[in-house]
Structures are given as C-alpha cells and as structure tokens.
Design a protein around this nucleic acid. Structure first.
Lengths: 187, 187
DNA sequence: AATTTATGATCCACTGTATATCATAACTCT
DNA sequence: AGAGTTATGATATACAGTGGATCATAAATT
C-alpha cells in the first residue's frame, strides 16, 4: 500500500516510477491482450522493482484505469460538441482529426487487448459528462442513447484504425455522422 | 487433453459430464465475472472431478466458447431476416420476442462478465453469416456495417435486459429498427 | 458378462499475486 | 550544501490457481 505522506505527490521519484509503469503498460498492451499481462511483465518493462508496483497500484486494473481515464477524457472532450452543435458533420470531422493525430495511442487502446475494458470506461465517463436534462427523442431513452452512441462511435473509430486504412478523415467522419449521430438527433 | 477415442462422442458419461460443465459455467457466470471463475469453481459447481475437466476442455475459454457459440447462432438466425425483409420492424419485433422468451439466458450472457467475449464471437459469426455480395450503401463499407450493426444491436438488447424493464417488446423493437437497422438500410 | 474407458482422489511442479523487511539511494527542505 | 525524510530494489514468504500424472474404481458399450 502506498504511503500517503505529504510529499508523495511532489516527489520526483514517484512521478518517474509512475510514468515508467504507465509507459510500460502502454507498450505491453500493444504486444498482447491486457488479461495476459502480469505485474512482473510491467515491472520488467518499466525497469522498476516488483514490490514497488504495489506502492502505487493495487493491481493491473487500477494502472490501466489511471492510464486510460485521462486519455478518454480528452477524446470525450472532442466528441461532446457534436451533439450540441448545429453542424454535426464538422464536429465528427474534428473528432476524427484528433484521433488521426494520435493514431498510435488510439490504435493501441481501441483495437488492443484492453478494448473492452476501455469501452466500459468510455460509457462510464460519457454518462457523467452528459447532463440529465439533455433532450432526446421521445422514442429513445437518454441513457440508451448515451450507451449506444458511445459504443458505436468507438466501433467506428476502432474499425477505421484497424481495417479502414484506405478511408480518409472526411469519409469516416461522414460515416460517423450518418450512422451514429444522425439517427439519434434527427429522430 | 481429451482422449479422441471413437466413442467419446457417443458415451453417455461424456455427454453428461459436458452438460454438467456447461450448466455449471452458465450458473457461475451469473454470480461473478468470467475472468474470476476458476476451473476448480466449475468442477465444484458441476460436481465433477478436477482432472476430468481437462479431458474435455483445455481451459475455461474453450468451455465458454462451446457454450456461447450455439446460443449465438440461434440468436443470429433470428436476426438475419431483418436486413433481408421489406418489413424490418416486424423482424426486429420477432428478434426481441425471441430474446424476451429466453430472458434469463441472454441476461446472463449479454450483461454478465462474459459480455465482451460474447460480442467478439457475435461479430465473428455475423461476418461468416453475411454473404460478401450483400449490398450496402456506397458511403458505408459492408464489413463496417456488419461490425457496427451487430455491436449496437447487442448494446440495445443488453441495455433492455439490464435497465429497460419498463420498455415493452414493441418499444424496444422500434428503437432497434430506427436506431440500428434504418440508418444502414435506408441510407 | 467381458471388455473398454471415463471418472474421482490425490499428488506435484510451475506461475503469478500480495506483503513484509531492510539497507541503500535519491529527493526535499532549510 | 547538508540533514532528514522517504521511495526504491532485493529478498523472502504465504497463498491461490494451472496443467498434468497416476491409479483404483465405477460405469458404459459390445
């Protein structure tokens, strides 16, 4: 268990170790499914001691959450304007542009072994980000719209990164808009 | 490793043991996430010996695949007519009716700890079930349509089973039709 | 009824998790 | 820059789960 002393947040060693562990997990997730990654794998990759791991994270799940949560918040920040704006196509284009700009990261997170875990975290954060009072069609409960909208947007982006190398940003933005956004808003 | 003798398929004991193991896993998946289920758990629940397990399945994944594959094929058989038929709403209604008729089973499989594993198997089987020559809108690659269509249909049904207790079959069929099917076909 | 073969009980080697201890190295603060 | 604080690595231990092997027994097939 990590000591909760007053300087644990500022100590350079702590930051270095945590950065090493995060980078190590990110690298390993590219090579094999998340479930197969052991704590010893992470420590070896990070160049840290085994017991040290537990001073920062109780298990592998927590590290992944720590790693993914902030990246997901970033992506979500780019996605939220879409439903608000009048021009949803422009919003989709901006979102796809952002993902393309971080292709390596999102390929790893969305198409690697951690994908299903990421989907859950995405939906969790999306539920928090969307206000309860947000209007939705009378035939479509808001919570279901959030779940399906988030999940299928992930599917589209993940497919693009994995199989859609020949599709331009404009093309995938059109698909995202017509397949995911429009059915929920133009209802 | 299971002996591949000539009678392993017919022997009543083999069938009984495998049914026990499948039923045991099905029961356990209701109580905790799939990843947390050990082979000893399954054997205890099934009332079989530990070593016996390995005569039938090399690991837990294989047993789950064995269990889920046939159920998925069933559900997919009910879902395929939707895109073919003229009246997609009726197809959606039939699909929801089937799921409602096996509510316990699908709640377990779609909303339990094995859900993400199931989604992958669904998409795998859907890819095999849809002929390559199936027409799709010019702006939407067929493979992406299969992936997103399958995945979001699962999301809708899973949400219905988990949170949508107050929605009727007719209502969820309308949602499935307008949110998932229509955007892909009426494009 | 005779033969074949699946089963259950037990044992083992191996891997990974989770924690504790302690000397050392590195950081923070004055 | 030096004193005090604290994270780190190395090492040891207890424990849980895996994948198999062996063998007497029970049950199925023929």
């Amino acid at each position: 268990m990590p000591r909760q002393s007053r300087s644990i947040q500022k100590d350079a060693r702590v930051r270095r170790t945590r950065d090493s562990l995060r980078a190590a997990l990110l690298a390993l997730v590219e090579t094999k499914p998340f479930e197969k990654i052991t704590i010893r794998d992470i420590c070896a990759q990070a160049g840290t001691g085994y017991a040290t791991y537990f001073r920062h994270y109780p298990d592998t799940d927590t590290l992944l959450d720590d790693l993914a949560a902030e990246e997901i918040a970033q992506l979500l920040a780019h996605a939220m304007p879409i439903t608000m704006s009048v021009d949803s196509r422009a919003g989709c284009r901006a979102l796809c542009q952002y993902v393309a700009g971080h292709r390596q990261l999102w390929s790893t997170l969305l198409t690697g072994g951690a994908a299903s875990r990421l989907r859950e975290e995405f939906i969790r954060q999306a539920r928090l980000a969307v206000p309860d009072a947000t209007p939705s069609p009378d035939w479509l409960p808001l919570d279901l719209a959030i779940v399906v909208g988030t999940s299928s947007a992930i599917d589209v982006l993940a497919w693009w990164l994995a199989h859609g190398h020949d599709l331009s940003i404009e093309q995938i933005a059109e698909i995202l808009d017509r397949l995911v956004v429009a059915p929920m808003t133009k209802g």
